Simulated scan of single mutants.
Amino acid sequence: MTQLHHTGRPADTATRTPGTDPLTLVVGVHLVLADDGAVLLGRRRNTSYAAGLWHLPAGHMERGEPVTRSMTREAEEELGIAIAEDGLELIHTLHHLDADDGRSRLQLFFRSDRYEGTVRNAEPHKCEELRWWPLDRLPADIVPYTAHALGEIARGNPLSTIGWPA
């Protein structure tokens, strides 16, 4: 029998069966700003992931913040706009197995029809340019999981997976 530490966790995790530990996910947040059949994408630059490719305004959750704050923070940092947390709508969840590093990632895609400010490239050191792209003519050089998610959103699918063995 495993002895419990005062925290309620097993004192010796080396005796645990592989695969029984809770999964630690990287959680990404993505903003889908759509206007008249077009979506806002930014061309990434000076980044360790997908430099030169088009991607939605996005980022990762930080420790200690709720997912809605993560999304509004990223909108402020990248686009210079303010979005109320209660103005966000979760429109798609993507469970993504990253082929580059083998990590499991939960990608959350939000929409907001209301924001304050003017959309601008607030991080030119990380984003070469912002551009509105017709949803039916996305660029060829787009982050693959972004294209996948936008297609699923267009089909009305709230959940998808990508990168997992069949």
Score class of each variant (00 low, 15 high):
2 T>Y: 05
3 Q>K: 15
5 H>A: 15
5 H>N: 13
6 H>G: 06
8 G>R: 05
8 G>H: 05
8 G>V: 07
9 R>F: 13
9 R>V: 10
12 D>C: 08
15 T>Y: 07
16 R>G: 08
17 T>H: 10
27 V>S: 10
27 V>D: 08
30 H>N: 15
31 L>R: 02
32 V>Y: 03
33 L>F: 12
34 A>N: 09
45 R>D: 02
45 R>L: 15
46 N>Y: 10
46 N>K: 11
47 T>R: 13
52 G>I: 08
53 L>E: 14
53 L>Y: 03
56 L>E: 04
56 L>K: 03
58 A>F: 04
58 A>D: 05
59 G>C: 08
63 R>K: 11
63 R>L: 14
65 E>T: 06
65 E>M: 13
69 R>Y: 09
70 S>Y: 04
71 M>H: 01
71 M>R: 03
72 T>P: 01
77 E>R: 12
77 E>H: 14
80 G>V: 04
81 I>T: 07
81 I>A: 05
82 A>L: 14
85 E>T: 09
85 E>H: 01
87 G>N: 11
90 L>K: 01
90 L>P: 01
92 H>M: 07
92 H>I: 07
93 T>P: 04
94 L>R: 01
95 H>C: 04
96 H>W: 15
96 H>A: 01
97 L>A: 11
100 D>P: 00
100 D>V: 11
103 R>T: 12
103 R>P: 00
104 S>E: 15
108 L>A: 03
110 F>Q: 00
111 R>D: 05
112 S>Y: 04
113 D>V: 10
113 D>I: 03
113 D>N: 10
114 R>D: 09
114 R>K: 09
115 Y>D: 00
117 G>S: 05
120 R>I: 09
121 N>C: 05
122 A>L: 09
125 H>I: 06
128 E>N: 07
128 E>I: 04
128 E>Q: 13
129 E>P: 04
131 R>G: 03
131 R>W: 06
133 W>S: 08
134 P>E: 10
135 L>V: 12
135 L>F: 01
136 D>T: 12
137 R>W: 04
139 P>Y: 15
141 D>T: 10
143 V>N: 08
145 Y>G: 00
146 T>F: 03
148 H>I: 04
149 A>G: 05
151 G>A: 14
155 R>C: 09
156 G>L: 14
157 N>D: 06
157 N>S: 15
158 P>D: 10
158 P>M: 08
158 P>T: 06
159 L>C: 11
160 S>T: 11
160 S>L: 12
163 G>D: 07
